[in-house]
Design a binder for these strands. Structure first.
Lengths: 127, 127
DNA sequence: CGTATTTACGTCTCTCGTAAAGATT
DNA sequence: AATCTTTACGAGAGACGTAAATACG
């Protein structure tokens, strides 16, 4: 599996959607040569032709059809994961341990901890 | 979603498996700096910390834990797709249409077609 | 004729390794 | 002291755009 396999899958899907390399190039704001090279890389990586190229029409091979179905799912799931993990942003969670003298702790630490927990319910503090 | 998102997911998984950046670097035959930069890129892309770094131990954050679970599945599925589509290699399939005069067809084309179909059962020929 | 794919070539970005510094046990 | 993470920096690889050639409708 080559360096940019998943990345070029997105290009491949765009080519199928657009119905042409040029259309996909416009959609992605790059030149057609970029598209050609990425699809070529995919085909060489897989050792299979994905698209029958003619000047006016693109046809999916059987391998291309299969890859297209699966690529749609892959890109969707990757985007889901990205969004889900990015949603952890700003959240404070996990376990925090603090060691100190009891008198110091009661006087200075506990109030701060109480405020932190009020603000971040997912934060656990152990003794 | 950044350029090499799926690619760096593999690095991330290797780091978790190895339990250290250096271990993952050895496993991948690269220098530790490469690992650091790829994990940094992932974290910046997601806007979330994935690993708590200490010199002697790595700890997954909640976001890191979640990403790890999903990354395992993603990499597995991508490899599956790669293998499945690559398996189309060498197979001849799809629809082939040939136009010619009946006398010529019967004399020269049909025998060849019969041989082709015998060799490649997935090949369909229409009239 | 207009638009599409393809490729050679120069440029430039970006990634890598080296090496040094800081941190931790 | 030994091993780890981190970062600045120079070198190298790789991707991009341009532009010309080719094919097709």
């Amino acid at each position: 599996m080559r360096p940019h396999f998943a990345e070029y899958l997105a290009t491949f899907v765009d080519v199928v959607r657009a119905g042409s390399f040029s259309g996909a190039a416009r959609r992605r704001a790059v030149t057609p040569s970029v598209i050609v090279r990425q699809i070529d890389a995919l085909e060489e990586d897989l050792g299979v032709a994905l698209l029958i190229r003619s000047t006016r029409a693109l046809t999916l091979t059987d391998a291309g059809q299969r890859l297209h179905e699966r690529a749609l799912r892959h890109l969707d799931e990757l985007a889901d994961t990205h969004a889900e993990v990015a949603a952890f942003d700003g959240s404070v969670s996990g376990m925090l341990r603090i060691a100190c003298f009891p008198t110091f702790g009661k006087r200075y630490v506990l109030p701060v901890v109480a405020a932190l927990q009020a603000e971040h319910p997912a934060l656990h503090v152990g003794s």
